[in-house]
Design a protein around this nucleic acid. Sequence first.
DNA 1: CTTAATTGCGTAGACCATACGCAGAACTAG
DNA 2: CTAGTTCTGCGTATGGTCTACGCAATTAAG
Lengths: 253, 253
Amino acid sequence: MEPTNDETGPALPPVVAAAWGLRERAPKGPRPGLALPAIVAAAVALADAEGLAAVSMSRVAKELGAATMALYRYVSAKDELLTLMVDAAYGEPPAPGGTGPDWRTGLARWAAAERAALQRHPWVVRVPISGPPLAPGQLSWLENGLRCLAGTGLGESEKMSVMLLLTGYVRNDALLTAQLREASAASGRRIDEIMPEYGQLIARLADPARFPALHAVISAGVLDQDDGPDDEFVFGLDRLLDGVETLIRARNA
Amino acid sequence: MEPTNDETGPALPPVVAAAWGLRERAPKGPRPGLALPAIVAAAVALADAEGLAAVSMSRVAKELGAATMALYRYVSAKDELLTLMVDAAYGEPPAPGGTGPDWRTGLARWAAAERAALQRHPWVVRVPISGPPLAPGQLSWLENGLRCLAGTGLGESEKMSVMLLLTGYVRNDALLTAQLREASAASGRRIDEIMPEYGQLIARLADPARFPALHAVISAGVLDQDDGPDDEFVFGLDRLLDGVETLIRARNA
DNA sequence: CTTAATTGCGTAGACCATACGCAGAACTAG
DNA sequence: CTAGTTCTGCGTATGGTCTACGCAATTAAG
């Protein structure tokens, strides 16, 4: 199972080989009855329908009409399946948009696309990742994001840092959204009731003398008005891109 | 176990009552042999030493010399224990710093303090949170952060959004750092070998014709130079605070 | 036809969270 | 002092998890 690769360098982790389709099948032995993409697709569908907790090896196997241990011929461990699921959930990145002076539009579109993917598959942000992104889909997203920054005058290192910052922001926003949805489901409240209730609880628990700034926020009704999750996302994204713009201007001055 | 609370409003979730020490003990029955803070402290120590995966109810109980099921007299479920662990790991927030024109120094210090707490307890970012922060420690951190923004001319809603943005950034940075460390441990490489190897793998896997921007980054040696995790953190933080500064200037114009 | 490789998968081991119920301790009411 | 109440500790049991191992069946090469 050692990835045969004629070029030199560090060995490919098995999960990377699987993601790039580099697992070569020996000509002997019975035909595989399952296929890795089908397994991943079934797992993704299951996670979409019933959440990440429902994705167990036995459950995925049942969904495919196979036995639990059959999956381990295609995947070396559950972690590997999860990594492949994430890559599948991201799907195709948005087309590379305008470069040069149009970098901001391009990055905003890129961020919106990542956010949309994470909203289609909210469980993605719950998957514990352990390593830098190497799956082909992940690299495509990174590539198309980096292209937006061509011609901005930023250094290569800075471009990479900006992308790291941006994807981190989008993922964090998706995580918060998913948490809100879970809190709503757990308490049985409607999702737009959660934040006002949260404000009431803070007001009750926190002594106004010790938490004056917090109480100022609460009594201003910040949590009562439902400004929608999109506004919050746009606010943070605007701050972040403003910061990048400041840097780009400094580099071109 | 319904939280008795004479004031009106939404019911307190049990975990919140526990965090605020509102669980009143009946005068009858035997003295409790354990105490909630001791349980939480043992669990935190265990997570620090052996990672979050080592924190099972039976393991925590063993650490305390108690039986597994004894813990359930103090904690209604494992989720509750995890939430309390997080609050304990954060500890005390930094003293509220300079307000007014000094907001930036204050927020930078606040962010550095959160980062330090998350570096002391890297498992915190792996705990799946399900709901807005209501534990006393969390609220103290939020309070002291909000105070930095007093006198900036920002609206209350904007202050809250800025804090959300900032803590999200710090947490995401800590998550990436933890992932890097895990990748290092899993592959047996030294931690400063991971990124250069990552670059080599990308160079080998990704076709330069399809991934030109990525290859530009790689061949610039971005991943080879070890600029240290602190530089990456400072870069993102600077961009973020630049963005906030732009907003504050706009509000005061 | 023999042989080597590979697949499907049954079994089993080692964990995990936690529902339930019982024995005993500690307090209160009488 | 006694009876009743109520809580604690925790043993047992259930149903779930991942996955190491090994065996039978299948396929193709020699």
